[in-house]
Design a protein around this nucleic acid. Structure first.
Lengths: 155, 155
DNA sequence: TCTCATCGGTTCCTTAAGGAGACCGACGAT
DNA sequence: ATCGTCGGTCTCCTTAAGGAACCGATGAGA
């Protein structure tokens, strides 16, 4: 899709979307995160076309989000694994899950529960301010030009 | 493009992507969030085609993320505004910005800085556990079936 | 009054991306 | 010898994105 590339926009959101903004990519990352790591398994689980899956996996590997590993030599078999960069993308998936649970789950309740191993409770993700630690929301922040801004009206 | 609808998947990530997973949608939300609220202004700012912008705005309004408001009567003029549901989506944008600042900004530094009005510092978003308050990361959680799960192997 | 500009779109055409499914080589199992 | 699995590639068709032109309602200026 995405005939217009976002890679050159002066915006961290746009540059992130350039890497994982295509609709299937977050679902592929989710699958690998929960342990569905092989080509055929991902294809079966998502119902994605094999062509598109191959394209996306290649793209995500070249952008350092995934790595392709050979886990068996005699029948040469491969799996995909998250890099550090990819694991941190999954944090965004936690934030997306929190929104989806709240606004799209309906009466049936959330499809999955998230158990935090640290405290052993069912939890959801909350955004906090890195400085003062209080809950952070989009309505409570101001946007200012940063060092990487371009031109007089950057974003 | 998204010829395959994600709306019926038993997954909060998929259902969220069904609403805002198309690549332009997050950028449209960002623009409205930072105060670019009129059709022509958004179109100019993003360089998106007018046709696609009209489609996206309609979609986001029908899904309750935006509302279309008439802000002038005599020359009938409209603007788009975030609903509560839409404002909470912008929290995801904060998480995306944090990742993009870290992994795509390069030597120039982040394009924008986020000032938290509560503490008046430049900050970034951190994910915390809703129960124990410690930092929450994708590697530290287990996924379990929730009440809205479907079938024996839901996701 | 005539002309020009703006806002918020709609319509049309071209091009590129997604979906379905056939095919394929390497290997293992029966 | 045949069948099945894994990890893809290739081809064909449909559909969505991009670009540009057009449009009605209004307002501003000469």
């Amino acid at each position: 899709m995405q005939r217009t590339s976002f890679a050159d926009m002066t915006c961290s959101i746009a540059r992130t979307l350039d890497i994982v903004g295509e609709p299937w990519s977050p679902l592929i990352l989710r699958d690998i995160w929960v342990g569905i790591t092989r080509f055929s398994d991902i294809q079966r689980d998502l119902g994605i076309s094999r062509k598109v899956l191959a394209e996306r996996l290649r793209w995500l590997v070249t952008h350092g989000v995934l790595e392709r590993r050979q886990y068996a030599h005699h029948p040469p078999r491969h799996e995909y694994a998250l890099t550090d960069k990819g694991y941190q993308l999954c944090d965004i998936l936690l934030a997306i899950t929190a929104w989806g649970d709240r606004w799209t789950a309906g009466d049936a309740g959330p499809p999955v529960l998230i158990r935090h191993r640290t405290c052993d409770h069912h939890v959801h993700a909350e955004l906090r301010c890195s400085h003062c630690g209080t809950p952070l929301h989009a309505a409570e922040v101001d946007i200012e030009d940063g060092p990487g801004a371009a031109g007089p009206t950057p974003r």
